[in-house]
């Protein structure tokens, strides 16, 4: 199922010469397509395609009790499902680690950047607050689900509208929306992941490239370069100089993506 070793060797050989199978540069994203409001039932939603990789993200809102450590702030619940329909590698059943990691990476990017103004999502301190559910589904996995999911989550949040709330009954009127947007900060976080393949660093890998990558670093930051979330994953070590290069590479890429997707972000 995984990429053949001989293909992996060839990918590394190519990268050494600064080339990729599909003709992209090492720091070049595939074509990104975005659709907003793909669901009429969700408060906010998006579809993101990066090359053949596709995810859909939906935002649902509900009213819940706040967490004890944040009685006057809204709740955030992120989950990701790697649907069996999106790859022969995914199976039905309880979420495995890659799905859990995906959800947590999105969660931390949003939570740590304070992108959602949770203090504005309190209805009654200690009793009732809005809970924001971000649900991510893979539709086709051709590599780099992480960046696709993070981007999709931001866009879905940006078009999310508050549902109607019956103050007397103290419950949400599902299916009816107000014109009020979800309260968000102006500074938008975006996660860009750098993949180490052999001695090369690559952005937006396709599935085969992702397979042969031995380490990756996901960096969630705002356009001004402030880093809010970061995680190195996978089994290979990274030198300090290399880590510096990763920070530069992801930053440069982030600036490019922000420019390219300006009308959505």
């Amino acid at each position: 199922m995984k990429t053949a070793r001989i293909t992996g060797e060839r990918i590394k050989q190519y990268l050494k010469e600064g080339k990729r199978f599909d003709g992209r540069k090492l720091d070049e994203f595939r074509n990104i397509e975005i659709e907003e409001n793909v669901s009429k039932k969700a408060e906010g939603s998006s579809r993101v395609r990066i090359g053949k990789t596709e995810v859909i993200v939906g935002i649902k809102l509900d009213v819940m009790e706040p967490y004890p450590d944040s009685p006057d702030k809204g709740n955030l619940i992120v989950s990701a499902e790697l649907l069996p329909l999106s790859s022969p590698r995914f199976e039905a059943g309880p979420p495995k680690f890659p799905a859990i990691e995906l959800g947590r990476l999105v969660d931390r990017m949003i939570r740590e950047s304070k992108f959602i103004e949770f203090e504005k999502l309190c209805i009654k301190k200690g009793e009732k607050v809005w809970a924001v559910f971000i649900d991510i589904y893979s539709i086709n996995d051709d590599g780099n689900l992480i960046d696709a999911a993070c981007l999709g989550s931001i866009i879905a949040l940006k078009n999310a509208k508050m549902p109607k709330y019956d103050e007397k009954e103290e419950r949400v009127i599902f299916g009816e929306f107000t014109n009020k947007k979800l309260p968000l900060k102006k500074e938008i976080p975006l996660t860009i992941t750098a993949y180490k393949i052999g001695e090369s660093l690559v952005i937006d890998p396709c599935l085969e490239e992702e397979d042969v990558s031995e380490a990756r670093v996901s960096v969630g930051a705002t356009l001004d370069g402030t880093i809010h979330s970061l995680q190195k994953s996978n089994e290979k070590e990274i030198k300090i100089e290399e880590f510096g290069k990763i920070l530069d590479l992801t930053e440069k890429t982030r600036v490019k993506i922000f420019k390219q997707l300006e009308k959505y972000l």
Partner: peptide, 25 residues
């Protein structure tokens, strides 16, 4: 880190500039 100073694990939550992160390393 390994004894040679190679990074085998790093995570980050919060708010930091690239320069400070390099100092942190």
């Amino acid at each position: 880190m390994t004894q040679d100073g190679e990074i085998t694990h790093i995570q980050l939550d919060g708010k930091i500039s690239k320069e400070d992160l390099k100092k942190a390393l």
